[in-house]
């Protein structure tokens, strides 16, 4: 038995601590020795070209990808591959996917209720009440009894956000939440995310929406080829990027 690595920071404001994280796929390094601290109640936006490892990094935080090496602490708890611990941590870490991944055989309401009942062991009445609160929060209580196939992409993504929020997570992870949406639906999802950011939720967002990064981020992280190239508050990051690669990337997406 090896002893659990000690949390490398005593700072109580650190919600997620990632240290020397490596994730390899068949010998290819998707995440290459990344260390990152996400502060409690702050919004961290990860940007970078496709294939830069930002989604993989995000998916390591709730062990949808098992890291090859390195350590992650979520709210002071060290992630190991012990199934029970992982399930407990995952219940505290909400995740929103690019492809929504709503459960197509359940209504919007049932989508938001199910994990509350199964994982949080809430009564059906309580779960229903919380589900309706969350659906109201994301602006579509009237779609509670619709099936995902009857909803637009933007509505589906908002249900997915409500589903994650209903678990009362400490952290919300967003994996390119607007990339699969038609342009006119992007705003309704970003508005929900902005409201959430304003409410003090700890958020880690992988996105190509630079407007969101400018307005909502407390910290912007730029990744390329599996490494963090540069990070900082958005006003500095966007105005005075230090690294040449950051400038090259920004000049390509900000015209």
């Amino acid at each position: 038995m090896s002893t659990a690595p000690v949390l490398p920071t005593a700072d109580p404001s650190a919600m997620i601590v990632i240290k020397n994280l490596v994730k390899e796929f068949h010998g290819l390094r998707a995440v290459d020795n990344v260390s990152l601290t996400v502060a409690r109640g702050k919004v961290t936006v990860i940007i970078g070209p496709s294939g830069s490892g930002k989604s993989t990094l995000l998916r390591c935080i709730n062990h949808l990808e098992v890291p090859t090496s390195g350590d992650i602490w979520v709210d002071g708890i060290h992630l190991t591959h012990n199934a029970k611990d992982i399930n407990a941590v995952r219940a505290e870490v909400g995740m929103v996917f690019q492809q929504f991944n709503l459960f197509p055989h359940l209504t919007a309401l049932q989508n938001v209720m199910l994990a509350q009942c199964v994982v949080r062991k809430r009564s059906e009445a309580e779960a229903r009440e919380i589900a309706m609160q969350q659906l109201t929060r994301v602006g579509i209580p009237e779609k509670a009894n619709a099936y995902p196939s009857q909803l637009s992409g933007g509505q589906q993504q908002r249900v997915a956000i409500a589903r994650a929020l209903a678990m009362n997570p400490k952290i919300m992870l967003f994996d390119e939440p607007t990339s699969a949406l038609d342009p006119e639906m992007i705003k309704e999802v970003l508005d929900v995310m902005l409201e959430l950011a304003g409410s003090g939720m700890t958020m880690v967002v992988v996105t190509h929406e630079m407007g969101f990064a400018r307005n909502a981020a407390d910290e912007v992280v730029f990744m390329d080829r599996g490494r963090i190239i540069e990070q900082g508050p958005p006003e500095i990051f966007f105005q005075q990027p230090r690294e040449a690669r950051t400038r090259a990337f920004l000049s390509q997406i900000l015209r």
């Binding site: 949808l64 870490v93 996917f97 991944n101 459960f103 994990a115 199964v118 994982v119 589903r163 678990m167």
Partner: peptide, 27 residues
Amino acid sequence: ISRGQMEAARSLGMSYLQAMRYIILPQ
């Protein structure tokens, strides 16, 4: 059934068997 279904269920804290029972098998 698409991989995303299992990932969504697991990301909500469900165990493998719970995800099978409530999400994958019904579909």
